[in-house]
Write a protein that binds this DNA or RNA. Sequence first.
DNA 1: ATATTTTTGTTGCAAAAGCAACAATTTTTA
DNA 2: TAAAAATTGTTGCTTTTGCAACAAAAATAT
Lengths: 210, 210
Amino acid sequence: MNLNFDMDSFINDFEHNCQRVQKKTFSKNEVITTYIQKRNQFCILISGNADLVRYDLNGNRTIVEHLSKNDIFGEVFYTVTTNNELLVEAREKCEVLIYIYDSIHTKCRNNCKFHNFLTENLPELILNKVIDLNMRVELLTKRTIREKLLGYFTLLSTRTLNKTFTLPFSLTDLADYLSVDRSAMMREMKLLKEDGCIEKNKNKITLKIY
Amino acid sequence: MNLNFDMDSFINDFEHNCQRVQKKTFSKNEVITTYIQKRNQFCILISGNADLVRYDLNGNRTIVEHLSKNDIFGEVFYTVTTNNELLVEAREKCEVLIYIYDSIHTKCRNNCKFHNFLTENLPELILNKVIDLNMRVELLTKRTIREKLLGYFTLLSTRTLNKTFTLPFSLTDLADYLSVDRSAMMREMKLLKEDGCIEKNKNKITLKIY
DNA sequence: ATATTTTTGTTGCAAAAGCAACAATTTTTA
DNA sequence: TAAAAATTGTTGCTTTTGCAACAAAAATAT
């Protein structure tokens, strides 16, 4: 995600002098956090990528969000009404800033770097989150698997400024992300190839239309 | 939506001394704004309610968002990549604050009330937006019409603290909101009644389970 | 390097959802 | 208040999607 400020240099300079912020490292497949109880946790993904996943009662897995560098997450963004469990799973080695707060407004007593950073940049971080979520809603409201696939491919193509791009995750995960059955998605993908809409080998896709 | 600050009293006191903010009134069915071109429009719905709708190439209408008092909207929240048109339609008489800005950071030269208000309260307003959107994603990722209906009803029941509640829009709109075919939704609703999961007359629903 | 696990690709069949069409009711408008 | 428009409710049929199961390929772990 493109930011108007330099997160990296902030992170490099960041001294850990605030009791309420921690920097933690997670290895592949570790659970970074869960959204079970309300504890006002707010996290920033500094490096790596992760997924927010939900397992429902029928055993379906849904990738609710795919998180990459500079994305924010945490149960502050949720009213925990669901009866399904939400987990954030590291997809590769991840560095995460974890922060607990009472309110967005509450400033740290010692006027620490991190709080100044937050006050300054939170609106932009959250705004980016809203933009991401709106694109997610756009995708999910599409009526057919074909439209969802094409919509997602168009998104990736636009982002990379290239008709050819690599999927950020496996096809199994893609189905869980689009919230559709994997075999049905594979079938539709085959049809898209046959119709000349896409080319595909492995996780590399080329959009032939639009 | 419950806010930690008093929007109403701000609005009442609000004097229109900033060139970049306008307060406008719209009557039922008027188009409040469109998300066609990038012009950094950011709006706050002061009263009434409205829908953000999309019409796709197959003639399907989707209610992307249902907006009510204190909700924020505008194309700042969108990267306009879609080829479908997005419109905000007033569902009843609406009062709207419309604001154009270069960046969240840019402060008004005359240090006006509105800008102070924004600086102070924007994080909370946007945070609420994120929470809403996450619930929306939760709903849309559900796999069946039945699950979507029950999920939505549970949401309304939780919000109103009551097993019986009135839908905020017509059944036709509900289908467009859940992004499913209306007749299929009606059929599922009938089954829900037959299975004793809900009771229903007109737009009043009672949840019998959970 | 080999065994194990995960992912990919495929299919037949079943279930769910979409489409079209229409009548009945309710709401809106003239 | 009568006419027009929109919403609700329903159904038969078609299409799409999901499910289950399996083989092949690839990735991962031992």
